[in-house]
Simulated scan of single mutants.
Amino acid sequence: MGDITYIPLAGGGWGYLAVWMDLFSRKVTGWQLLGNMREELIVQAFKKACTNRNITEDLIIHSDRGGQYAGNKFRRLLAGPRLSQSMSGVANPYDNAFMESYFSRFKAELLQGGCFDGLENARKEIFEFIEMYYNPVRRHSSLGYISPVAFERQAGYQQKQESG
């Protein structure tokens, strides 16, 4: 499942964070932070997610109805035999509730109402949050109070790498 959120920067600017999450384990498998939210933002994050996964069975790739997810470049990435695209229903935010919940917790735990000094500072802090805390340490009630990495290990889930 994928989505984009705005990242506040000092001075009133914005960064844009695209995240892909495996709903099985709630692990963030790919992410990208850029200064714009063009299609390339989600494409780069999705390529990271695919690099970090050993895709052995058919996958449904879900997102909201943002224009980036309907773009030609992204749709070409999904043209393979193992990937099918799913998009939220029109005006139905509940179809993307997992990502909305993730971003809500992400902002509450990392930003705490503040902002980052700049894009590079944001990238460093987001890396530390996702790769060093959220995936390997943060416990989830939906996973039996273990982290996404521990849940995948316990389930014998196959992956190419540990980090995104």
Rank of each mutant, 00 (worst) to 15 (best):
D95L: 02
M132G: 11
G114P: 07
K124V: 13
E100D: 03
A108Q: 15
R138W: 07
D95V: 03
S147I: 04
E125M: 10
N135D: 11
R105S: 15
I126Y: 02
G144V: 07
A108D: 13
S101D: 00
F127G: 02
V137F: 09
C115T: 09
F129M: 03
Q112M: 15
F103Q: 08
G118Y: 04
S141A: 15
Y145H: 11
R123H: 00
Y145L: 04
N135H: 10
H140V: 05
L110K: 14
L143P: 04
Q112F: 10
E100M: 07
P136V: 08
M99Q: 13
L119G: 06
N135C: 10
S104D: 00
I130P: 12
I126K: 06
E128T: 11
S101A: 13
R105I: 14
G113I: 10
M99N: 10
L119C: 06
E120G: 01
S104C: 02
R105P: 01
N135G: 11
C115S: 15
S142Y: 06
L143R: 03
G114Y: 03
F116E: 00
I146Y: 03
S104F: 00
E131D: 14
S141D: 03
Y134E: 04
L143A: 05
E120L: 02
E131Q: 12
E125T: 05
N121R: 00
R105N: 12
M99Y: 04
F127R: 05
E109M: 09
K124M: 02
L119A: 05
L143Q: 04
N96I: 03
R138S: 09
E100C: 08
E120Y: 03
V137M: 15
V137G: 12
F127Y: 14
N121I: 05
S147T: 03
K124H: 09
E131V: 10
R138F: 08
N96R: 04
I146S: 03
D95N: 12
M132C: 15
S142D: 04
L111S: 09
Y134R: 09
R123V: 00
K107A: 11
F129S: 07
P136D: 06
G114F: 06
L119Y: 05
C115R: 14
M99G: 04
C115K: 15
L111F: 06
P136F: 08
E128F: 12
Y145E: 00
L111R: 11
I130R: 09
G114V: 04
N135F: 08
S147Y: 01
L110W: 13
F129V: 01
I146Q: 13
G113M: 07
Y134N: 09
Y134G: 10
Y102N: 07
E125S: 11
Y133G: 09
F106V: 14
R139S: 14
I130C: 12
D95T: 04
M99P: 05
F116S: 02
L143Y: 05
A122H: 06
C115P: 02
C115W: 11
M132R: 15
I146A: 05
A108H: 14
R123G: 01
L110N: 13
S147P: 02
F103N: 10
R123N: 00
V137S: 10
C115M: 15
P136C: 09
Y134H: 14
Y145Q: 01
Q112P: 06
